[in-house]
Computed example of a mutant assay.
Amino acid sequence: METGERLRRTRSYYWGCIYASDEEEGDFGDLDGPGPIWTSHCWVTIQVRHARLVAKEEADVALTIEVRQTAAADFAYQATIDLPSGVLSVGDADSDEALRLAPGTWLMQVDLDSPDDATNVRIVLSPARPSN
């Protein structure tokens, strides 16, 4: 597994959410959580600035994803996500990126600059359990 920064993107999210899921998992099932993070076994939804509710020049959200061998300290939100395919799809209904990891269960730690109107999202992924 390659560690370090794997993705850095700045763009608007028309739907107001960043979705992260196993590339082959089509159904997110029942999402759980108080917000701004909702999870299921293979899906994480992160509420961000809603591009339809602000001026175009204020709509961008900066997303950084880092992969580590061990968990980071002091992140406000975390969830585990099952990746049987080993590929994490990150984006929204308009476009997404694929991160090749390893099959297994991953810890996803999320830091937001604002829980109500995030424009800066940092995600750290680290292995929770490898696939058998």
Rank of each mutant, 00 (worst) to 15 (best):
M1N: 09
M1H: 09
M1G: 13
E2W: 06
T3Y: 03
T3D: 05
G4T: 12
G4Q: 01
E5G: 08
E5C: 11
E5F: 11
L7A: 10
L7Y: 02
R8W: 13
R8E: 13
R9F: 15
R9E: 14
T10Q: 10
T10F: 10
R11N: 14
S12W: 08
Y13E: 07
Y14W: 15
Y14D: 13
W15C: 02
W15S: 11
G16Y: 02
C17E: 08
C17W: 11
C17V: 13
I18W: 01
Y19H: 09
D22C: 04
D22P: 02
E23K: 03
E23Y: 10
E24W: 08
E24A: 08
E24N: 02
E25L: 06
E25F: 10
E25T: 15
E25C: 07
G26F: 11
D27M: 05
D27R: 02
D30Y: 12
D32R: 14
D32H: 14
G33L: 11
P34L: 15
P34T: 15
G35H: 06
G35V: 12
G35K: 06
P36C: 01
P36F: 01
P36H: 00
I37H: 03
I37P: 04
I37V: 15
W38P: 07
H41D: 12
C42F: 09
C42K: 06
C42S: 14
C42H: 13
T45A: 13
R49V: 13
R49A: 06
H50G: 04
A51P: 06
R52F: 12
R52M: 12
L53T: 11
L53M: 09
L53I: 10
V54W: 02
V54S: 02
A55T: 08
A55N: 06
K56D: 15
K56G: 07
A59Q: 05
D60T: 09
D60C: 01
A62H: 09
A62W: 03
I65Y: 00
I65S: 03
E66D: 07
E66A: 10
E66V: 15
V67M: 01
R68D: 03
R68T: 14
A73N: 13
A73T: 15
D74A: 00
A76C: 05
Y77N: 05
Y77F: 10
Q78W: 13
A79F: 12
A79T: 13
I81C: 07
L83F: 03
S85I: 04
G86M: 07
V87P: 03
D92P: 01
A93D: 15
A93V: 14
A93P: 07
D94S: 11
D96G: 10
A98V: 13
L99H: 01
R100C: 12
L101Y: 08
P103G: 09
P103I: 10
G104S: 00
L107Y: 10
L107N: 10
Q109T: 14
V110H: 00
V110I: 15
D111Q: 11
D116P: 04
A118P: 01
N120A: 12
N120F: 11
N120L: 12
R122M: 07
I123F: 03
V124M: 07
V124R: 00
V124I: 14
L125S: 06
